[in-house]
């Protein structure tokens, strides 16, 4: 347990030490948040109502979909996992640590968004802030789980980037961040249901602002929990210590 805690602390520190991680965990979401806050309310004043959940979910997606898979592929191909293996680091630790450290980074980032959104852009403060933590944890769990799986199954960083974009780009367009689920064309709505961001937005809006749910909250919770769990189980099954085919 002591080793796990030490490893978790190190993994979390890496999010600050590595420039790419620091950028994806903080600077990129923050820059996007400031840009959207400055532009979107002028184009669509209703955006402010959804600004806080949309930016929270965007931060999670940037940190996980863009930030997790590449380091996993790099660590595997550069022999870091081989070194871990012979020093008896369990694979389940390597699967779970990126998820847990993402929680820490997202807690920090969420606090920044929650404070700055009303102050800088006049976004409405949530009617209830208590649900934020569990909803954030659920979103991180699902997105980080998918991201770890992408890293585990990708044989190169290029493949990892492409697979990440399969989730990231559609989530940005039809995942409820820019356009509410209800306003999507009916032909697109079924596709949006496959995206974690759709369900996260549904839950954040329902529980933080007490608005009417577009999708049953129970369904959204089940989708996020089930997807995250399935992704992590598959990650454990497909986990490889290096890129060689034979690694018993």
């Amino acid at each position: 347990m002591k080793a796990f805690i030490l490893h978790f602390i190190f993994e979390t520190k890496s999010g600050f030490r590595k420039k790419q991680q620091l950028f994806l965990n903080y600077f990129f979401p923050l820059g996007f948040f400031l840009m959207m806050g400055a532009i979107m309310p002028q184009l669509n004043p209703l955006f402010l109502d959804d600004m806080i959940p949309a930016m929270l979910i965007f931060s999670v997606m940037a940190s996980t979909f863009l930030g997790i898979p590449d380091p996993i592929v790099n660590d595997r191909t550069s022999g870091i996992y081989r070194g871990y293996r012979v020093n008896r680091v369990p694979s389940i630790f390597l699967i779970s640590l990126p998820v847990l450290s993402s929680v820490i980074h997202m807690l920090i980032m969420s606090t920044v968004i929650l404070i700055l959104s009303p102050l800088l852009f006049g976004a409405p403060f949530p009617a209830s802030i208590l649900p934020i933590l569990p909803l954030l944890l659920l979103t991180v769990f699902c997105c980080a789980g998918i991201s770890v799986l992408i890293g585990v199954i990708s044989t190169s960083t290029r493949a990892a980037t492409m697979l990440s974009q399969v989730f990231f780009i559609p989530s940005m367009i039809i995942g409820g961040l820019m356009i509410p689920y209800k306003m999507l064309p009916p032909s697109v709505q079924p596709f949006a249901l496959f995206l974690p961001s759709t369900h996260s937005m549904n839950l954040f809006k329902t529980f933080m602002y007490q608005t009417e749910a577009s999708i049953s909250p129970a369904v959204s919770i089940a989708v996020l929990t089930g997807t995250g769990t399935a992704a992590l189980i598959l990650s454990l099954i497909f986990f490889r210590w290096d890129n060689r085919k034979d690694n018993s």
Partner: peptide, 9 residues
């Protein structure tokens, strides 16, 4: 190992 490394940071 011949080809192993530690995390760069």
């Amino acid at each position: 190992l011949q080809s192993s490394a530690l995390p760069s940071n």
